[in-house]
Structures are given as structure tokens and as C-alpha cells.
């Protein structure tokens, strides 16, 4: 029995008809057509699929689309202002936080959730927050420095 839902993805409402077992990830990639979020493990281990649902970080591979009915979903595509990258995205680029790029969408969403919750995190808090986002390229150093730099810039701007 398919279920009618409305997902608000990056501020745009999408009326959809979904299988009750369809994941939020597959629905956003396949039905909405936003393929920034990645499927890595499909098991809540790697974080490549991470989205914000009503502001909460969610491994969307393991979250049912039907449960997000009426929720505000933010994917990596929603972080930038059109073609203008978000400060976190710029910092990842300039500080070596991106290599192959597969973890990057989830990593950026995870970092966004961290800074929303804790605007001035310690390095330990940053490393803890991205523990659920596996990166096999960068060694995390550039990622951690990029997140710390954005937090510091925001603090300096008051």
C-alpha cells in the first residue's frame, strides 16, 4: 500500500507517493532527484547519507521516508545559497577537507548539525561529531581544521 506524503526538501515541498519501506535516502535521490546525498553502507555506519530532518542529523538510509512526512529536510544541496557556497563548504575546499568527495555531503551536513548545536566546539567535540562519518581519504585533519576555522570565523564576527 503506497502512502502519500509531502517532504519539504531544502525549502521546496514535494508531494510524493512512497512505499512504506522506502528509505528517506532513496526517496530523495530517486523521487526528488537530489543525488548529493550518497549511499555508502546502507547501514547507519558511514554517514554518507546524512541529512537534517527538522534540524536533527539523520542517517537517511535507515530512516523511512514516511516518517519524514511534513518534516523539513535539508540535504547538502540546501547548504549553499544558490551558487554561493556555505562557509563550511568553502573551508572544506581551502583546507583539504575534500579528496574523493564521497563522504563530503554527509560530512558537511554532520558539521552543520554540530555547529548549530555547539557554535564553538573543541577539537575533541569536532572529532566526536564526525566519528559517524567515515572518510578514507583525508585522514580527517583537513576536515577537522575546516570545521574549527568556520567556528572561529563565526566567533570573530560575533
Amino acid at each position: 500500500m503506497a502512502v502519500d506524503i509531502t517532504l519539504s526538501v531544502n525549502g521546496v515541498p514535494y508531494p510524493l507517493t512512497v512505499d512504506p519501506h522506502a528509505s528517506l535516502l532513496h526517496t530523495v535521490r530517486g523521487d526528488v532527484g537530489l543525488t548529493g546525498s550518497k549511499e555508502g553502507c546502507d547501514d547507519s555506519e558511514c554517514g554518507a547519507c546524512m541529512m537534517l530532518v527538522d534540524g536533527r542529523p539523520v542517517n537517511s538510509c535507515s530512516y523511512l521516508a514516511v516518517q519524514a512526512d511534513g518534516s523539513d529536510v535539508t540535504t547538502v544541496e540546501g547548504l549553499s545559497d544558490g551558487e554561493t557556497l556555505a562557509p563550511l563548504q568553502e573551508a572544506f575546499l581551502t583546507r583539504g577537507g575534500v579528496q574523493c568527495g564521497f563522504c563530503t555531503p554527509g560530512m558537511l551536513v554532520s558539521a552543520t548539525a554540530l555547529l548549530d548545536r555547539s557554535p564553538n566546539p573543541s577539537e575533541d567535540e569536532i572529532r566526536t561529531a564526525v566519528s559517524g562519518n567515515l572518510c578514507r581519504c583525508t585522514g580527517y585533519d583537513g576536515i577537522v581544521k575546516a570545521i574549527a576555522a568556520v567556528a572561529a570565523e563565526r566567533a570573530a564576527q560575533g
Binding site: 530512516y63 548539525a113 566526536t128
Partner: peptide, 9 residues
């Protein structure tokens, strides 16, 4: 428990 995404949900 899990990661911050696990704990948030």
C-alpha cells in the same frame, strides 16, 4: 550510543 545522528533519533 552510536554517533550524534543515532543519538538525535
Amino acid at each position: 550510543v552510536g554517533s550524534h545522528a543515532t543519538r538525535a533519533n
